[in-house]
Computed example of a mutant assay.
Amino acid sequence: MKYNQLGQSDLRVSEIGFGCMSIGTEESKALRLVHEALDQGINFLDTADLYDDGRNEELVGKAIRGRRSEVILATKVGNRRLSGQEGWVWDPSKSYIKSAVKDSLRRLGTDYIDLYQLHGGTLDDPIEETVQAFEELKQEGVIRYYGISSIRPKVIQEYISKSNVISVMSQYSILDRRPEEEILPLIAEHGVSLIARGALAKGILTEDGAAKADQGYMEYTPEQLAALRENLRKVSERRHSLHHTALRYPLYHPAVAAIIPGASSVHQLVKNVQEGEGDGLTPEQFSKIQSLSYPGQYDPEHRLK
């Protein structure tokens, strides 16, 4: 397993991390998945207080008990559930962040979080107040570093310009190349790392993804996906699979420190590690993939909020 520096921090994360949202709520299965991830050399685990109403954090916490020193632990904050109401509201206030972190620490069974991420963001946020909350938590030793999870270029730009975020988490894959136009150049300029989620595009970019491709994806029709999958197999050549190509594509950009594919079974998890290892894409392969796929653009809503 290769480990990369996350932004300008002293955190070194496995280039293949584990998106823990997929572990489910059944304890024995969830613990088995996280333990297998660690045994495979994955040290970067990503969760959020929102997932399964906090249950996900609890399970991750149980799984890393006794192995905390092996883990770069990331979680998220900002989506607040209100008692008696369905869904959640966005709350990036200092008071809420400093309250919510205590609940996350308790559920995770730890006294510090390596990477605390704002789980969204808008241009209407009280950004200075929000940043102050994270900075105070750093000073208190409750968190080591902080970042933002967002697909909104203008929001990311604002937080990068007004804070010490070390990372941006965003969807990035062969089928969603939107970060290439605005986000990747921005973060590369400021020494911030991208954590890429969705590299396998809901499983479409795996050998067994034909049925999922029949449902379409973003601007791609089922017919376009079928043709693209076939062309990507040719780009992959004999040595590598479609799965491998999909995982290595985001990692080609030097600003991408890690990808965080999820897995709901040990087989899927091990497959992700095995397929993600090995040679990266050549410049020729990367260029060919770009010529076969859509560059994509963020819609106006994502530009303005």
Score class of each variant (00 low, 15 high):
K2P: 08
K2V: 11
Q5T: 10
Q5V: 08
S14P: 10
M21S: 05
A30K: 07
A30L: 11
R32V: 12
V34T: 11
H35N: 11
A37N: 13
L38D: 09
Q40T: 10
A48W: 04
D49K: 11
L50M: 14
Y51F: 09
D52M: 14
D53M: 14
N56Q: 02
L59I: 02
G61N: 08
K62I: 07
A63E: 03
I64T: 03
R65P: 01
E70D: 09
E70H: 08
I72L: 06
R80K: 14
R81A: 14
R81M: 14
W90D: 08
S93Q: 02
Y96E: 11
A100Y: 01
R107H: 06
L108T: 05
L108K: 04
G109H: 05
G109I: 05
T110N: 05
D111C: 07
Y112L: 06
D114I: 04
Y116I: 01
G120I: 00
I127R: 13
E129G: 10
T130W: 07
E136L: 06
L137F: 00
L137Y: 01
K138S: 00
V142R: 00
V142I: 11
R144Y: 01
S149R: 03
R152K: 15
P153K: 06
E158R: 15
K162N: 13
K162R: 15
S163A: 05
S163K: 00
V168C: 06
Y172K: 00
Y172F: 15
I174L: 02
D176R: 04
R177I: 02
A188K: 12
L194D: 01
A199W: 04
A199P: 09
L200S: 08
A210D: 12
A210M: 08
G216S: 03
G216E: 02
Y220L: 12
P222I: 10
P222H: 12
L225M: 08
K234M: 07
V235Q: 01
L251H: 01
V256T: 11
V256C: 12
A257S: 09
S265K: 14
L269W: 15
K271I: 11
G280F: 03
T282I: 04
F286R: 03
S293F: 03
E301N: 12
H302E: 12
